[in-house]
Design a protein around this nucleic acid. Structure first.
Length: 425
DNA sequence: TCTGGGGTCCTAGGACCC
DNA sequence: TCTGGGGTCCTAGGACCC
């Protein structure tokens, strides 16, 4: 049985989440900003039409914002995460297997739906999800994930598609691939796009039908990725549906500061707080780490005196104990801290994760059982009473700090906080 | 003045070993 | 003066994704 994938992708997801609870935003230009309200990460169609680009720094578009009354929001991750869960639950009603690909995308296995009209089925999914969650989405259907991505782009762009576009079967495929710019193919970024264009490959059809010589050049430049991409465009599926989330290979927690920081004490607090975030993720994954890195950097936009340094330590015994990790991290920080630098970003990384099996060391002085109980208690209190209820003193809890991320225009936590639930008056 | 965060995979090249 | 071959493992860096 040939495989059939549907890619369900929420339209302008973060903006759509804001609109669910604030319907007055419908039809208006709206953008959602990154941490510290730095740059644009989600745009409504109206904002796109004004020429606001993805990733644009806010200070560069402040004129446009003023002129057109663009509504702006800080990121509200609690809201988006919760809305995403609702959308994914709805989607799972429509297919036997679902792969959650990102916060706003999922692949559905529609193999064996041959007797249904797939376009109609896709439209039914869209209207049900919209009705149940308020979130609009588009569906692209095809024999491979890469083709489903292309189908999805067409579903989003063309109003006749009414939310869903089916690319299975030979009929519309050539035309669809001809109309697809090389840069719109999944896996083609800035660098590969330039390479392929230099080789005369301007659209997906030309890439699909590459001759042997061109395939060779692509293989040399892009490796196996390039080969697989051509196969996928030819309807040969190279990527199957991953229904169970793969265990994480590493965990990173880092933040950019609104204003640069020089003070080592403040940097220590920031690093301790990133360790807390990372270690909690680690425990949620049921994992321990045996490699910890701490890094510091100044602004990457000030090339003249750019400074970046990273220190990695291998731990004698793998752990997920926040306190223990803070201890190591602070020593790493002291190692790479250079006085006089204005730091703009700092973070921590855990690598070499292992699961559920701590290799004990003969020289270990820490009571592992006790540490495990302590972390379980910490996590359960924070889960019950709210994140950050219990925190290490090293993170300077309860005080407003220069390294704290700024969210000046954040909407209420409508769905995850009883105090902020929407009211009907 | 002001520019996000967290991932994955692949490859080349060096170190090391037999 | 002469100076092998092949395998494995690890890491850094590149490229991409959302």
């Amino acid at each position: 049985m040939p495989s059939v994938f549907a890619l369900a992708d929420c339209n302008n997801f973060y903006v759509s989440c804001e609109r669910v609870f604030n319907p007055k935003l419908e039809g208006k230009p709206v953008v959602v900003l990154s941490n510290n309200d730095g740059c644009v990460v989600s745009r409504s169609n109206e904002a796109k039409a004004l020429g606001i680009k993805m990733g644009a720094p806010v200070f560069e578009i402040s004129g446009l914002i003023k002129k057109h009354g663009v509504k702006i929001f800080s990121s509200n991750y609690a809201l988006y995460g919760d809305m995403s869960q609702r959308v994914m639950e709805c989607l799972s009603d429509f297919a036997k297997d679902v792969e959650i690909y990102s916060i706003d995308e999922a692949f559905l296995d529609l193999s064996g739906f041959a007797y249904e009209n797939l376009t109609d089925y896709g439209r039914r999914i869209c209207s049900s999800v919209k009705k149940w969650t308020g979130i609009p989405l588009s569906i692209g259907i095809a024999e491979t994930k890469t083709l489903a991505k292309i189908a999805n782009k067409i579903a989003k762009k063309s109003p006749e598609a009414k939310g869903a576009f089916d690319l299975t079967g030979p009929l519309r495929k050539d035309r669809a691939l001809l109309m697809t710019d090389i840069s719109d193919i999944w896996g083609i970024g800035y660098s590969y796009c330039a390479f392929l264009e230099r080789n005369g490959v301007k659209n997906a059809l030309l890439l699909r039908d590459a001759d042997t010589a061109l395939k060779g050049r692509i293989k040399r430049k892009m490796g196996v990725w390039g080969t697989r991409m051509i196969d996928e465009l030819n309807g040969i599926s190279c990527y199957c549906l991953e229904t169970c989330p793969q265990p994480k290979k590493g965990i990173t927690a880092s933040r950019t500061f609104k204003h640069p920081i020089e003070n080592v004490k403040e940097l220590k607090e920031a690093i301790a707080s990133y360790i807390s975030i990372g270690a909690e993720k680690l425990r949620r994954e049921n994992a321990v780490t045996s490699s910890l890195s701490v890094f510091l950097m100044t602004s990457r936009f000030k090339v003249e005196d750019f400074y970046y340094n990273i220190k990695t330590v291998e731990l004698p015994v793998a752990t997920s104990d926040t306190g223990e990790l803070i201890g190591y991290a602070v020593r790493c920080l002291e190692n790479i801290y250079k006085k006089g630098c204005m730091y703009k970003k700092a973070g921590i990384m855990f690598k070499d994760l292992s699961r559920n099996c701590i290799q004990l060391s003969l020289f270990d002085k820490i009571d592992r059982k006790r540490s495990e109980r302590l972390m379980q208690t910490l996590d359960s209190i924070n889960l019950k009473m709210g994140s950050g209820t219990l925190a290490y003193a090293a993170t300077a809890p309860g005080k407003t700090k220069s390294w704290h991320t700024v969210f000046e225009k954040r909407s209420p936590f409508y769905t995850t906080n009883w105090e902020q639930i929407p009211q009907v008056l």
